[in-house]
Design a protein around this nucleic acid. Sequence first.
DNA 1: AATGTCAGCAACCGCAAGTAT
DNA 2: GATACTTGCGGTTGCTGACAT
Length: 241
Amino acid sequence: MGRPPCCDKTRVKRGPWSQEEDAILRSFVQRFGNAGNWIALPQKAGLKRCGKSCRLRWLNYLRPELRHGGFTDEEENLILSLYGELGSKWSVIASRLPGRTDNDVKNYWNTKLKKRYLASTREAGRPPTSPPAAPHSGDDSTAAADSHQAQEDESLLPLTPPALTDLDTAAFVDTGAAVVDDDMLLFKSEQLYAELVGLVEKQSQTGPSTGGDEASTAATTPSSSSSGTTSSCPTDLLYYQ
DNA sequence: AATGTCAGCAACCGCAAGTAT
DNA sequence: GATACTTGCGGTTGCTGACAT
């Protein structure tokens, strides 16, 4: 028996994200965080996307603190140095580069730095790499050290969305990414959000269940404890099509 | 101008680790 | 402790635009 798919690939959209999807996801995450559960987020946000895809899109592209654009010489040198030290621990390397993602670093390495690195190691007359063994090598000591390092680094650059109290001030800060063109999309996402809140309030007022109150409070305390994750946001009501 | 090749990047896949029940 | 579920990560693929022929 094979591993079950993380989501129904016949019912989720794949491929490049549209501006509208970006706006919806950005708005939703900035309001609610990941609602406690990335898998359930797309349904709650009204996106026909796999949860993993939403997470990746947010982490690699939509986070406001991200830096887009070319790498500086300092960053290049740091990557080269860290690669020699750590190997392909892209998340660890990226954590040393504020505003960069592991995917960014990895892509940059594969397209630019790898050649330079191999050339330099050849010139130095040594084997191409002496980085630590790959994660699957079974070297638990280095793996554990790396894991620990990663935890330390994550504390320096949190990857999870900020709390809503921060988001309220951080939300819709100009990320430099086509904000003017996105105005209409952001406006639309705001409308969607308003509709969402309205539905939640309506449900909490008229609904017989206990979920309504949780959902409405979720609008103000999105990143609360992990318990009640699936009820921290309204479900089932939000398939905007 | 048309075609082929390459580079850059976004996104997907599948595994492992972590966490909750 | 076992199981199920979610998240994080690294490897890889595929699309697109730039450049060369």
